[in-house]
């Protein structure tokens, strides 16, 4: 038998064995049998030196081709056999059984919405700030054009701190009723342009019910520059609320009065629960007051040392607690301060 014939026979033998192999172990054995240190093909290749010199190149080429063909066939069959094994393994699993979830806690919905708010405003150049909850009457009211005994104070019934054993005049230190108190604090320290939001907790002396709490969260915001217009306020409110609550929400603006803005604006959003039909959550109005706002009153600009003829600005407050409840269709603000895991686990 010539060397060529011998090689071809070895190739055929190997290939037929490989193709009939059904598992990895058999393939390993075949590999050893032909390509191992003393495998049939390995030994045959060693015999090439015996071939006459003039034929050696040709036979050598064939030998390499045979070796390559056997290796490729082994590889192909290995892949095929592996796939078969995996299929069998998978078939043995009952995939209908629910998965085992990793034990991960939950971020409070208020945090989730607050982070969204901070992010949306960051994109339009607003930085986030944080201020004291124990506030002075000065920043909470006076700077904001709400002198003592102004009827507007009725809508913000105030908690006064006990001044015993201190030098503080009674009535001067309070729990802030609005994050707007930060307008004065920030603007006194920095010149325009200013774009700031202030998320935070506020306190009002109110009886608690489904839509009122004596502690609630707001996000104050204000923007002052050489030329800020009422249309900018409408545009900003529209942009922010659509980014937060979905582009299809319905909004409408109305006139209102807060002493620290003029013109004053109130923003109503169609109730997300009933889609405007009226339900217990929107007090059957179909709309929810969500974002009071307005152009900053000249008296406020003056109080912080700005020239109201040279700069203008707008301010707004987002009812964060309300935004959260509207987003998730929660019908009671008190759910937000209820630490019940059955509530928390939904977020």
């Amino acid at each position: 038998m010539s060397m060529e014939e011998q090689l071809m026979n070895l190739k055929n033998e190997a290939l037929s064995l490989i193709l009939s192999a059904e598992d990895g172990k058999t393939l390993e054995e075949i590999k050893l049998q032909f390509l191992g240190r003393s495998g049939k093909l390995t030994l045959a290749l060693k015999d090439i030196v015996k071939v006459p010199v003039e034929n050696r190149a040709e036979v050598g080429k064939l030998a390499n081709e045979v070796k390559q063909a056997v290796e490729e066939a082994l590889e192909r069959q290995e892949g095929f056999v592996k796939k078969e094994t995996i299929t069998k393994k998978r078939a043995a699993i009952d995939t209908s059984i629910p998965g085992i979830q990793p034990q991960i806690g939950h971020l409070h919905p208020m945090t989730q919405v607050m982070l969204d708010v901070v992010e949306v405003f960051k994109q339009i150049g607003f930085q986030a700030a944080d201020g004291p909850e124990i506030e002075t009457d000065h920043y909470n009211f006076e700077v904001l054009n709400i002198p003592k005994d102004h009827p507007a104070r009725d809508t913000q019934m105030t908690f006064y701190l006990d001044t015993r054993n201190s030098k503080v005049t009674p009535g001067e230190v309070i729990l802030r009723t609005q994050t707007s108190a930060m307008q004065g604090r920030v603007m006194q320290k920095v010149k325009p342009p200013v774009r700031v939001i202030v998320p935070g907790k506020n306190f009002r002396y109110e009886q608690v019910d489904a839509s009122h709490g004596f502690e609630f969260w707001q996000v104050e915001g204000f923007c002052v520059d050489t030329h800020i217009r009422l249309t900018d306020l409408f545009g900003t409110i529209d942009y922010v609320l659509r980014r937060l609550m979905g582009q299809d929400i319905k909004l409408k603006f109305a006139t209102t009065n807060f002493p620290f803005v003029e013109p004053g604006v109130d923003t109503y959003m169609e109730c997300t629960v009933c889609k405007g039909k009226g339900c217990s959550f929107c007090k059957y109005a179909g709309w929810s007051e969500i974002m009071p706002a307005g152009m900053i009153h000249p008296n406020v600009l003056k109080a912080v040392g700005y020239d109201s003829q040279k700069v203008s600005g707008f301010a707004f407050a987002i009812g964060l607690s309300r935004l959260v409840t509207l987003r998730y269709h929660m019908d009671d603000l008190r759910l937000l301060t209820n630490p019940d895991l059955r509530i928390l686990k939904q977020f």
């Binding site: 930060m182 920095v190 342009p193 545009g235």
Partner: peptide, 13 residues
Amino acid sequence: MPFGQTPVVTVPY
């Protein structure tokens, strides 16, 4: 939307 400069100074608070 408001035009003009976006504040670059870190805001107080």
